[in-house]
Design a binder for these strands. Structure first.
Ligand SMILES: [Mn+2]
Ligand SMILES: [Mn+2]
Ligand SMILES: [Zn+2]
Ligand SMILES: [Zn+2]
Lengths: 140, 140
DNA sequence: GGTGTAAATGAGAACGTTTTTCATTTATAT
DNA sequence: ATATAAATGAAAAACGTTCTCATTTACACC
């Protein structure tokens, strides 16, 4: 019952919020843009505006239910927050997104921040490349 | 003589391009947004449009003369390309930007890409935090 | 179950950054 | 000097995202 998640987050239980949560939970793609979510809503014949989708996703972010990736110049994408930090690998051909976590990198980042006198609050790491599938498609 | 840099890059030698190059070379801040460059031009009483500044910076990027940082949701910032890759630390209070390079992180990234079957083409790493100066200003 | 109130929504306007369009100007090869 | 392709300025458009404001809705209380 997702209603509890919403109430716990101090948000009223409304149809747009339930539907957006449902989409994020059942999507085959874990990382979705606001536009992706909006299109899915249209397919489900839900008359929910794009502005509402943005609002809801932003509120979910504030409530810690989702996190937002700000990839380069592209759209922001959102994913359900599962409490575990991770970073991302992106295919520049097909936009596939893979996740990874590397403690060595995490630790080095902390050391670099300390060495430069920074109190680290966050970091953002994206590795770009061509995924295995896209490499094969390109063999000539 | 910056004209040579331009000609080498296959770009005609024009006043806007010379001025933008000059600004990037003499700026006290190594990282500048298009707007920053444009404002500097106005101060120098050069009547160069913002669209031209964007165009020139984008061409310089294509020619390998400058590189573009796409920081989170903020403006893009540009810096003169010196051939040496580095990553960035950003102060979330005063927007100060510091540079660093860490071979351990670079190497781990290569390993992660390989492990996931990606042919790595690029990466982007930003560490966010509060710089030393801004920490002191906040002591209560 | 009604009622009142604050919160949430939809539609479209506004936003800030960046790109495009198009008529005019300019650099450069001849 | 001339011709031609490239570069420019100004304004409009594009883009993703946020805001405004009139209307609707959730839900605390009776
Ligand atoms: Mn993820
Ligand atoms: Mn730099
Ligand atoms: Zn791919
Ligand atoms: Zn600072």
């Amino acid at each position: 019952m997702e209603s509890q998640d919403l109430r716990k987050a101090g948000l009223k239980v409304t149809l747009p919020r339930l539907k957006v949560l449902e989409i994020l939970e059942s999507a085959e793609q874990r990382h979705m843009s606001a536009e992706d979510v909006y299109k899915r809503l249209l397919n489900m014949d839900e008359e929910i505006g794009l502005a509402t989708v943005y609002r809801v996703l932003t509120q979910f972010e504030g409530a810690g239910l989702v996190s937002r990736l700000s990839i380069d110049g592209a759209h922001a994408v959102f994913e359900l927050e599962d409490g575990s930090h991770h970073d991302h690998l992106l295919c520049i051909r097909c936009n596939r997104i893979e996740e990874f976590i590397d403690e060595v990198i995490e630790q080095r980042q902390r050391e670099i921040a300390q060495q430069k006198g920074f109190e680290m609050t966050d970091h953002s790491l994206y590795i770009y490349g061509v995924c295995r599938d896209c490499q094969q498609k390109n063999e000539s």
